[in-house]
């Protein structure tokens, strides 16, 4: 790899290494988002629960995640907690944990806002028919809330995908990390970062397109609301 190759040759030269990084980026994103959805739903249920202890747990969790930067969380979990407890976890595992806790907190708030956005009369109508609270939630409130929150959830997915790049600081060999490795060897930062930016851009564009299709399908299926 020397500075004399032209741009396209250079792309072909470094692409295999970047694709390896991108594959890890995608894996991290998928794993952490699946887990984050679960964390988000549980945390949201804690938040809207009538049990004070559960409210308190989710409130603490949310305020810690929101009140600290992702990079600090990454260092704290990968270096801090592991050394305090004297355990070893892989960088990939640590990265997924960090991202899932982080995205989970924001998703929790998105879900809560979605549930609150459903008209109060919907719950009243359901309950007035004799449906228990849990059934009303499952069959009336949540289906409407999900449709409301899809754009915000997709937005959070995109943010999390971008946040994976921050995990390069703890040595996670994702797309950004591989790029930095390449630049450390050949100092071609302009082309390399441009290519990396384009790769992220393509990923996010695909994600956005898919979500638009889902949104449109939901809208067509169920009539206007």
């Amino acid at each position: 790899m020397n500075g004399s190759t032209n741009f396209f040759e250079y792309v072909i030269q470094i692409l295999p290494q970047l694709l390896k990084g991108m594959s890890l980026t995608i894996q991290m994103t998928v794993y952490s988002l699946v887990l984050a959805m679960i964390v988000g739903i549980v945390s949201c249920m804690f938040t809207i629960s009538k049990v004070k202890v559960l409210n308190w747990i989710s409130a603490t969790y949310l305020s810690i995640i929101r009140g600290t930067p992702l990079m600090v969380q990454a260092f704290f979990i990968y270096f801090g907690i592991t050394s305090a407890l004297d355990i070893r976890i892989s960088i990939f595992t640590a990265s997924v944990i960090v991202l899932c806790l982080n995205a989970g907190a924001y998703l929790s708030e998105i879900f809560r806002s979605g549930i609150l956005a459903v008209n109060k009369g919907q719950m009243e109508a359901a309950r007035s028919l004799g449906l228990p609270h849990s059934v009303a939630m499952r069959k009336i409130i949540l289906p409407q809330a999900i449709r409301i929150v899809i754009p915000s959830v997709v937005n959070q997915f995109i943010i999390t995908l971008k946040d994976t790049s921050i995990l390069s600081v703890i040595g996670c060999a994702e797309l950004m990390f591989e790029g930095k490795q390449i630049i450390a060897r050949n100092l071609r930062s302009f082309e390399t970062y441009a290519i990396i930016a384009i790769m992220y851009y393509i990923l996010i564009t695909i994600m956005t397109k898919v979500s638009k299709i889902i949104e449109r399908r939901l809208a067509n299926d169920k009539g206007k609301s």
Partner: peptide
Amino acid sequence: NRVRENIGMVFQQFNLFPHLNVLENIMLA
């Protein structure tokens, strides 16, 4: 819940379930 099954209520704002069609609205409960 059992008592409510025997008391129907109609609201000022209708409060139909917008994600269900007319038949599903009526059949659900």
